[in-house]
Structures are given as C-alpha cells and as structure tokens.
Design a protein around this nucleic acid. Structure first.
Length: 843
RNA sequence: GCGAAAGUGGCGGAAUUGGUAGACGCGCAAGGCUCAGGACCUUGUGGCCCUUACCGGCUGUGGGGGUUCGAGUCCCCCCUUUCGCACCA
C-alpha cells in the first residue's frame, strides 16, 4: 500500500480510542469508585475469565461487550453500578500449560492476567479494578480453606471412596477431559478406574432447599432452572425390603412405582452391590461369575451407559421373596443397575418398566401384568388388535397409570392410590416405606493436582483426620512442587509441606496433598469483590449486605448447572453461618449465546482455541477500532442466541460509525451552534427523535442490543437528512445529533465521547445523563392505516393519529383502488383498529 | 428414548405479542464521483406476473389441517435442526 495519506481512517480511530481510554482511566474515581447510595445501585456481575494459555477471543468478547454496554447505559441513566472483575486463576489448564512450557503456573497465570487486562483496556470495557480478585493468591484461597473448615465442623465435608481415571503409565489421575475415549491424552495408555478416598461436600443435604429456591428465580432463563431441576432429580416413591432367606439378609430397593410391586418378578442388583460376594459364594460357577462382575466394574462408565448398550446380566441362583406376593423370585446382577443411585438394587417389574421389560425378554424372566390401562384409549386398543397383539403377551411395557389388578387387597384401586397404600403398608410392616430420593450426588472436591487450594486437613495415625487450626491458615501452596504431570500427586513430593505435626496430639502427621476443585473458588467470589482486602474475614457482612445478592449476572450457558448450583449451595451455607441474609445469590441471570465457527473439520462449533477455530479480536481491533468491533459483535443478533462468526459483516457497523462522525463534522462545518435547541417542540423530526429515544432505551433494558444498533442507524439516517437539508431547523438538528451521540455511547463509547466533546459537551457521557422522551411525541403524527377488503390489504391511508372510524371509512371509499374493490359488493361488516387498520368485509 | 428451544429473502436478523411480513445491516444490481478502487454518495432489491408507466394482480414466514373479519404469532398433526439429560428404578 502506498502510505501517502497523512492520517488514515484507522489511525484517526485509534487516536480517538487511545485518548478516551486514558481519560477514563485518569478520571476513574468519578465514574467507578462511587459509594452506593442507600437502597439504590446495581451489582452487575460478569463471569470471571480463566487466565490459562489463551488470550481472550471473539467467543469471550460478546459477554464483556454486552456487560459493558449495559453498565454504561445504567450509569448514563444515573444508576450507581458495581461492576468488578477478577481472575479464576487456579485450575488444570494453567497446570498443564505449565507442564508443557516448563514455566511455573503462577508465573504464566500472572502474565496472562496482565495480558488479558490489557485486552480489556483496549476494548474499552469499564471495570472497578480496585476490587480485583485473583483466586490463586493466599489472600483469596485462605478463605476457601476457612469455609472448608466450617463445612468440616458441620459434618458437611466428608471422606468417601470414589473412582478416578488412573493412567497406569503416567501414574497419575486424569480429569475426564484428559481421558477422552478412555485413553490418557498424554501417552495413549488405556485409563483404568481407581478407587480413592476423597473429600466430598454434602450438597445432597441441601437438595430440597436448592430445589425449592428454583421457584423463586423468576429472572433466570427457564432453561437453566429446568436443567438444575433435572440435575437435582427429585423422585418420590418408596423403599421396599426384599428378604433373602438363604443368606438371612434383606435387600432394600427404591421404586417410584410401589403400586407395581405385585408384578416384581426379579430382584436385580448392581455388580458393585455390597452383597454380591455373599450371593456368589456358593455358586457352582463362582469364578466365572466373579470374572464377569469384575469386567462390568472395570468398564468405563461411558461405555456402560452408552446409547444402545446391551443389557447384560447373570442369575445368581439365589432366591429372594417378594414381600407382597410372598413368592420366590430370582436374584440377578445386571450392568444397567447403577450402584450409586438409590440403593444400587431394584425390583424388576417387566410388565410396567421398559428397561425391566427388555431385560426380562432377554433372560426369560416372567412378565406379570398388574396395571390395567383405563379404557379411554380406544383407538390404540383397536390398533393393537389390528396388529394382532394378544393381551396376555404384551409387546411392550405399559408404564402409564391405570387400575391395579392381581394385587391382593390393592386390586381395583387406581395406581396412584395403590402407590400410597402399598408404601404405607410397607412402613407399617417395617419393611420400608415412603421415600424421596435425589439424583444429585455429593460434590467431589478433591483433585490430585498441584495448582489449587490445599485442603486444610492433617492426617495423624492416632487421631485420624484433624483440621488445621484456623489460626494456622492459610496452608500455603508451596511454590516448589515438581509438577511433571506424571508419577502421582505433586504435593506428596514436597517433604516440607507434607510432614507436620498433629494439631491434636503433637505427634508426627501428614498433610492432605489433594487440592480443591476450582468451583470452590467461584462459589463465593462475588462476595469477596465487595471487600477484597479483608484480612480477618472472607468479607465484611455489613458491606456485603449493601451490594448483594447480585442484581444481574451475565455469563455463558456452560455454567448452567455446576457453577451456578455450587454457588447456590454455598449461599445456603453462608446463610446458615450467618454471613449473608439471602439463599439465592443471583437475582437475575442472563446467558449470552456462544459464538460459533466452522472448525477445520467442517463442523460448526463453539469458538475455542483448542478446536482451532478461535478468532483473535486484537488484530481486528487494531485495524477497525474497538468501537466498530463492539458495535458489530452486539449487532450480530439476539444476544441470548448463538451466532456464527463471519467478519465480513463488520463493514456495516464500521460504515455506520464513520457516517456518524462525518455527519457531525458536516454539521459543525456549517457553523451552526451544536448546543442549539429546537425552535418548535412538535415537528416530524422531533417526533422521530423522541421515538428513537424511547425505543433505544427499551432495547437496552431488554438486552436487545442488536435492535438498539439498528434503531441508532435509523436515527442517523434521519439526522443525515436533516444536516443535508438547508431548510432544517439548526437547533433541532443539533439536538438530534447530541441525542444520537449520547444514545450511541453504550455501544461505541470512544467515538461518542469524542463527538460529544466536539459538540461542546463538557462532561463525559458517563455522567451527563440520558435523554428523556415525551410519550406524547414518541409517536408519529400521522398514522398509516391499512385498508383491507375482506382481509386483504388494498390501500393505505395516511390520517392524523386518533382519526375516527367514520373519517377513515369516508377516506377509504373515496380511494380509487378501494372503490374498485367495493364496486358491486355489499358491505357486511367493518373492523376498525384505531390508527392501524380498517377492514371492510364484503360479499 | 425423554425434555426444552427454534425453523421468516442469497445471508445475519426485525415484526408494537392476533392487525400493512421482511425494520436495520450484509450481499447483489444500476447510476454518480474517480486514472483507478475492496473508498465514498444516490437508488433499487422476497418470488412470480402485468404494464410505455411510478398503476396493479397473484403468491409468500419448514409441511398439512383448524380457529378468526384477519395468523409468522393461537390450537392439532407431521418434518427438520440445535441444545440439555441419557438405563436414575
């Protein structure tokens, strides 16, 4: 390129943007560090980024642009906004990056934080950096440890066995995402499950409270509420005990359908069930069965639960007794019974459960019908008869409600009442009773990893697990652990860390070498933001009370379940500790859609560096400026929907911004007063302006940023026409341009500030107020009324707003086209919608 | 399989919630300005048809039916796509 021009367009843009970035930084105190006026203000929380190897790319940027537009808009309307930012700095990606590059994760994380902070700066997003939080610093994670101790005290942090993915070659534990396809992603060795004792937080104790709270989350997306509800997975039913006389034992099962117990023709246990060894003890082919049990247990969970997985079972030869029929039924083991749901055992009712039906068909287990479908569905009956099905050998399980049959004293009852009666009966006989169960599992927080919060527990031979005394916190993560990704837990190899004394007996003891899941960090970070420097408590409850709960949380859908559920759980813990007054930490939630892009494989996928489809924003911003990129990203479409990235479209918003600039310049060159005011209130251009203010304000309130940009473009088109019109009222034009520049600020803050200043604005737009609109003027003076003949639009009338039906009819019939359609017809009916439509129904 | 959301021009998407479908932008086309342009400015742009004409007609929101004076919007059936859960007893 011949660089002859002294100042190119892009140089000009970058100059303006640099100027305003500096200005905002310089005057930050005026914009950001505002104390909250009593009872007012908005806590705007945005999902904190994860400073591992990646720079922030387009996929992330949407969240931050959206939040910043909202933030600036609120501030312009006079709301005090608290909008802090921090870093979710612990975690596996940073550790892996460190292993690859041989750099300490703290070094690389801090470097990434600095780089990302610079990115934020160049994007023109406004955060309260005085509240910055970095989760990998002891000032932060010591409170993770403090919370852990509180949970331990309350019996909510417990040790249980749990399987991990173990790579026998690297001698290390792998996260699920490192064991994709059942092989180690480092060496390709098949991963094996390995049972380890680990720390769990008993979120299941809070299942009901977490479920109940969902009903209060009116400003959360329904989708997320539903996902959480399903995740908690409450089911109501009954526990029932099935006796095994030969072992003098009984097996408890859980069922949601106790009404079908008379049809239970087998007892089926998970291969992991505690009773399995005894069940197999006397089996003639014991070794064979044990080998089968081992093979099922060894199977990858994914493979075992995979779609279409064949049901596989073995008869133990042992008999159990159905507690209601009194009949002997076989005891089976099967792969489809999940060990850690319910009791790890179930009663098989093949006639009324599709899975049991498949199983029974395969292995010849009797199918006994005990629920009769009510006769309502006649059509289906007929259909079945046509297909030649007989009633005695059903081809499928009937899982619906109906009338109970062949069930002793419960026969002829409805299935719903039998359900209660049978559960009640079991309770009276001491063999079970009504029971509520949840799918939710306890939260496994142990990670056999280096880069996380050390779990503040000490193991002593004599006193077992002893908590680190509060005064000894934080348990500092030693900087010098050998993290190679191989050979087990890095902290185990740091003798100075591991070896300690028992706080109870003073004897030699060893520290816990597992670290915490990073979701612990993010479960309460929003509270640390309000009081980030507090050295004596995680936060001051009085300050927290001022700002929390969070008014508006913005983040991606990927956190719909785990992060948000854990944060809701922690809020309940904190409430029970008396530290906060709420149970629901986030009053309103907005999930922006993902930016997708074609991967090299051709699939449309979420944008991410690991998929090789990430587009960096930095070069684009260097070329087009942050304002154009912001406007473009926000213009992509409804922010809650996914959007496919294609940067060709950026020229639209780019041209738009440049035209705003040239229109203002043209107006200033004319010599007119940019601070002028209209000489008449009610003019078509004034009405257009009031309408634009109304629509754009409503758009911002509704997160409809893409239509806000469209409406700004319309306003500009009007303004350009005014500037080009020699007869226009210069005061009106000046007012339109000032309005445009003000409304543009949330989208394109740099340019709007520059133009505001050029037009004589003395204060930053952040504090100079949002334009008001007059409802009387925010409508067009003339209504264009569609004239329909029998529902078809035939003409359009322009009438003063509020015109009467009579006037409209008179105007319509004198219209040539309408008259043509009315000719020779009889008018039957008239539909009149004020200022909208006139429908003449004719025959 | 279950659950949820969605399907509108060549493309991204609007549509005051039952009232003129296609705002705004991209792309495309014609013209202007230019030595030139991937710069800028006009104008046009769902499809089909009629017309010398700027008049006008038919059709059109995944498909089929229904309610209504009137349906992108409400109801029923079907198809497709995306997402979530996925043997949870």
């Amino acid at each position: 390129m011949s660089s002859t021009a002294p100042t190119t367009k892009s140089e000009e843009i970058l100059r303006i943007e640099a100027k305003w970035r500096e200005r905002w930084e310089r005057d930050r105190a005026a914009f950001v560090d505002t104390a909250k006026p009593a009872g007012e203000g908005t806590y705007l929380l945005v999902m904190l980024p994860y400073p591992s190897g990646d720079r922030l790319h387009v996929g992330h940027a949407r969240t931050y642009f959206l939040t910043d537009a909202l933030h600036r808009f609120l501030r312009q309307t006079g709301v005090t906004v608290f909008c802090p930012m921090g870093w979710d700095a612990f975690g596996l990606p940073a550790e892996n990056y460190a292993i690859q590059k041989g750099i300490h994760p703290r070094t690389s994380t801090l470097a990434n934080i600095a780089a990302m902070k610079e990115q934020f700066r160049s994007w023109g997003v406004l955060y309260d950096w005085t509240k910055e939080v970095t989760t990998c610093e002891p000032e932060y994670y010591r409170w993770n440890q403090w919370f852990f101790l509180k949970l331990f005290e309350k019996g909510l942090a417990v040790r249980k066995k749990a399987a991990v993915n173990w790579c026998p070659s690297c001698l290390t534990v792998l996260a699920n995402e490192q064991a994709d396809g059942g092989v180690c992603d480092r060496c390709g060795t098949p991963v094996v499950p390995r049972e380890l004792e680990q720390w769990f937080l008993k979120i299941t104790d809070y299942a009901e409270r977490l479920l109940e709270g969902l009903d209060t989350l009116a400003d959360w997306p329904d989708k997320v509420v539903t996902m959480q509800r399903n995740w908690i997975g409450k089911s109501t039913g009954a526990d029932l005990d099935f006796a095994i006389p030969s072992l003098a034992e009984s097996v408890r099962v859980f069922t949601t359908r106790p009404d079908t117990v008379y049809g239970a023709t087998a007892l089926v246990l998970a291969p992991e069930h505690a009773l399995v060894p005894r069940l197999l003890a006397n089996h003639p082919r014991k070794a064979e069965l044990e080998a089968w049990v081992e093979s099922i247990r060894g199977q990858e969970r994914i493979a075992r639960e995979a779609e279409g997985a064949e049901k596989d079972g073995r008869d133990t030869g042992v008999k159990a007794v159905n507690p209601f029929t009194g009949k002997e039924i076989p005891v089976w083991l099967a792969n489809f019974v999940i060990a850690d749901y319910g009791t790890g055992a179930l009663m098989a009712v093949p006639a009324h459960d599709t899975r049991d039906f498949d199983f029974a068909k395969k292995y010849g287990i009797p199918i006994v019908r005990v629920i009769e479908e009510e006769k309502k569905e006649k059509k289906e009956d007929l259909l079945r008869k046509e297909e030649g099905e007989s009633a005695t050998a059903p081809s499928a399980a009937y899982t619906g409600e109906g009338r109970v049959i062949a069930s002793g004293p419960f026969s002829a009852k409805s299935s719903s009442s039998a359900r209660e009666l049978i559960a009640q009966d079991a309770a009276e006989r001491g063999i079970g009773g009504p029971k509520v169960r949840y799918r939710l599992r306890d939260w496994l927080i142990s990670r056999q990893r280096y880069w996380g919060t050390p779990i503040p527990m000490i193991h002593c031979e004599k006193d077992r697990w002893v908590p680190v005394p509060e005064k000894d916190l934080p348990v500092v993560l030693p900087p010098d652990a050998p993290f190679t990704g191989k050979g087990g837990n890095p902290l185990e190899k740091v003798a100075a860390f591991v070896n300690t004394t028992c706080p109870k007996c003073g004897g030699p003891a060893r520290r816990e070498t597992d670290t915490m899941d990073t979701f612990v960090d993010s479960s309460w970070y929003y509270l640390r933001y309000v009081d980030p420097k507090n050295a004596t408590a995680p936060f001051d409850p009085r300050i927290a009370k001022e700002w929390t709960p969070v008014d508006q949380y913005i983040g991606g859908i990927e956190h719909a379940i785990l992060h948000l559920l854990y944060a809701r759980f922690f809020a309940r813990i904190l409430k029970d500790l008396g530290l906060v007054a709420f149970e629901e930490p986030f009053s309103a939630l907005f999930n922006q859609g993902m930016i997708t892009r074609q991967s090299p494989t051709g699939r449309v996928e979420k944008m991410s560096k690991s998929r090789g489809n990430a587009v960096s924003l930095d070069p684009l911003i260097a070329e087009k400026g942050a304002d154009a990129v912001r406007a473009f990203v926000l213009f992509l479409g409804p922010p809650e929907k996914d959007a496919e990235w294609n940067d060709e479209g950026i020229s639209g918003p780019e041209r738009f911004l440049w035209r705003v600039r040239s229109t203002v310049d043209r107006f200033l060159e004319s010599g007119a007063d940019p601070r002028g005011t209209p000489s008449a209130a009610d003019t078509p251009t004034a009405r257009a302006r009031h309408m634009a203010v109304k629509r754009i304000t409503e758009d911002f309130r509704a997160f409809s940023f893409h239509t806000a940009v469209a409406h700004l473009m319309e306003l500009l088109n009007g303004a350009t026409a005014q500037v080009g019109d020699p007869g226009a009222d210069a005061g009106e034009t000046a007012t339109t341009l000032r309005t445009l520049v003000t409304l543009l600020h949330p989208i394109a803050p740099h340019l709007s500030e520059e133009l505001n200043e050029k037009m004589g604005g003395e204060k930053s737009l952040l504090v100079s107020g949002w334009p008001a609109w007059d409802p009387a003027l925010a409508v067009e003076e003339f209504a264009s009324i569609a004239v329909q003949i029998s529902g078809k639009v035939r003409a359009e009338l322009r009438l003063p707003r509020g015109s009467s039906e009579e006037l409209a009819i008179a105007a319509a019939v004198s219209n040539a086209t309408v008259a043509k359609w009315l000719e020779g017809k009889q008018r039957l009916k008239t539909i009149w919608v004020q200022d909208r439509l006139l429908n003449l129904v004719v025959k």
